[in-house]
Design a protein around this nucleic acid. Structure first.
Lengths: 331, 331
DNA sequence: GCCTTTTCTGTAATCGATTACAGTAATGAT
DNA sequence: ATCATTACTGTAATCGATTACAGAAAAGGC
């Protein structure tokens, strides 16, 4: 049966009080050299391992940061996570992950769970519909940092690290238009989240500015999944007037688009031009002449988030820090 | 400033003792209807949120499962993780992730950290060199489940969910040989981990059985990274006698192989045949005539791991559960 | 009606750390 | 030699839950 060593055991064995043991082990307060050595020796001999739970209870600090992302297998979010982890780990923080599956209801439960676990901060790429809860958590002193996706309302007081989605989509669309594409098939992302909404707005503005007719049948509403990228292609190919270019609003849907075009025996750029918000591995295999994409910097965004967290938790910076990454077109 | 509501607050407000509040909230022991209603009402009104930390300390149970995987951005491991999460979440467990970066030293620190956090169990795809620590943790009553990679020694007592790597590699190699490939370039994985070792053994056995000369210069030792897949191709292409087929021992290296072949303007199957342990998205774009691969089932493996964990933690099953997934060749 | 069993509730100890406080010893200043 | 610091150590309270135990009231059995 498991018998965990506690500072009480060390105290007994070393012939001192638990207060002294604690002082030695945490390197706070006074302790004579003799006792210090003795305590450390006993701790090592007994193979003592501190109990973070007890420490957390007393200190009101868990050194855990909750992370809620919609899709744990999307490389974009995992690169963000890696960036966060690399930064916060240095200061002894660890990440408690939850994947929300683009499901607001699940997300709500996870937020509450993280609060019960008393995480020191929460990082979330929200799936929407939890704005009030998120705001209230932030105001009740568990810092919340929004990543990639903002709230529908109430962003003023929040920390966030996002992209300028409007601008990115605007540039992508303008590029297509300047390349003389008139029939652009849009693979739209979820309109429940800010990235989806903003990218769609950027597209619409560009179409207006260049006075191109917007046709409803050229809009396919997806949910950021590979599968929906494939479905979009099936849909577009079934139209009487097929688009000459497809504009996909996130990396995973672009992957679906590319795979499905290939499956149908269609090629880029002969049969279709691809404009993609975000990059994917499969895109590296297609003809550069047939594509344009918005380059994203998920790792850097993660690093920035990590820095904001540390500012909050270690340096006790208070004001909202809001970081917007600018898009960069790339062939 | 944050003021967390405790059962003490509820007790005061409801005019009962904390014992009663605890009984009501955790649904254990007796409580009259009147008091039950009153307590629940007050809890709701005060927006009470239980403190898992305190609960964990008292109960010696955190409901957290530590997960150590070498690469958080490898879809293979993330699919495993998803499988695990889907199963254990049902029973109220959450995952505490750490990415070991294929670094045994980092992994050792993370194992110790997980112990300090008093996780209820640990799931690990080890990067090697920590066999003793891992065994001792398991024997000291924190269940450890090995995933994908076994230990060098001492597996008898452990739980694990792995693949039959030897068999998979043997089949891949035999296939290549039967297709008349004599010069096979091997992109080897890390020999610090069991998958690397076993796959390499499977290859060697097949070569022996078919009496094919094994040439050292056709072995490129990689570390399971995309980058090393690329390097392997560069290396093979620089040889006087280029291989006619490349045998890559994991998914990420295969991705590198495919991307680099493309970059160099080489095509599959004209310039090279590809045998891959594991599947990747980019492979879906290459000519099926030029490839063969071992299909893996990471999600299913994850589900199995989750079930083993629950057996241990909920049903208190003791004996080691060892699950070996059989490989399946697929074009 | 009397005894047993069940239901209900509170007191207080406990989990494993940290730390305010108090008391004592050693050191330094003049 | 005297007083002020500084160094050291232990006692006990505390964080927020759970629960053994005990005592009291209600319900059930005959």
């Amino acid at each position: 049966m498991k018998k965990n060593i506690t500072i009480k055991d060390i105290a007994r064995e070393a012939g001192v009080s638990t207060a002294t043991v604690s002082r030695v082990l945490s390197n706070k307060g006074y302790a004579s050299d003799d006792i210090r050595k003795k305590v450390l020796a006993v701790a090592k001999q007994l193979n003592y391992r501190q109990n973070s739970i007890a420490k957390s209870l007393k200190m009101h600090k868990t050194n855990l940061i909750g992370v809620i992302i919609p899709d744990i297998s999307n490389p974009y979010f995992m690169k963000i996570s890696k960036g966060i982890e690399d930064v916060v780990q240095e200061k002894g923080y660890n990440l408690l992950f939850m994947s929300g599956d683009e499901n607001p209801h699940k997300e709500e439960k996870q937020l509450k769970l993280l609060l019960e676990h008393r995480v020191d901060a929460i990082i979330i790429a929200t799936s929407g519909k939890n704005d009030e809860l998120i705001s209230s958590i932030h105001e009740n002193d568990t810092p919340v940092i929004l990543i990639d996706r903002k709230l529908e309302a109430g962003n003023e007081k929040m920390d966030f690290v996002v992209e300028n989605n409007f601008e990115g989509a605007y540039q992508l669309t303008s590029y297509l238009i300047r390349q003389k594409h008139k029939l652009i098939g849009v693979v739209n992302g979820s309109l429940n989240v800010s990235t989806g909404v903003e990218r769609f707005s950027g597209y619409k503005k560009a179409m207006e500015d260049y006075a191109i007719v917007q046709r409803d049948e050229l809009i396919f509403n997806g949910d950021f999944s590979v599968e929906d990228g494939r479905k979009a292609i099936d849909y577009f190919m079934g139209l009487d007037q097929r688009p000459t270019a497809v504009l996909s609003f996130n990396n995973t849907m672009s992957t679906g688009v590319i795979l499905q075009l290939d499956k149908l025996g269609l090629t880029i750029p002969d049969d279709m031009f691809l404009a993609s918000y975000g990059e994917t591995e499969v895109a590296q295999l297609i003809n550069p002449k047939g594509k344009i994409s918005v380059k994203q910097s998920p790792y850097k965004m993660g690093v920035k988030v990590g820095e904001i967290i540390l500012d909050r938790l270690v340096l006790h910076v208070t004001g909202p820090t809001q970081e917007v990454f600018n898009p960069q077109l790339e062939k």
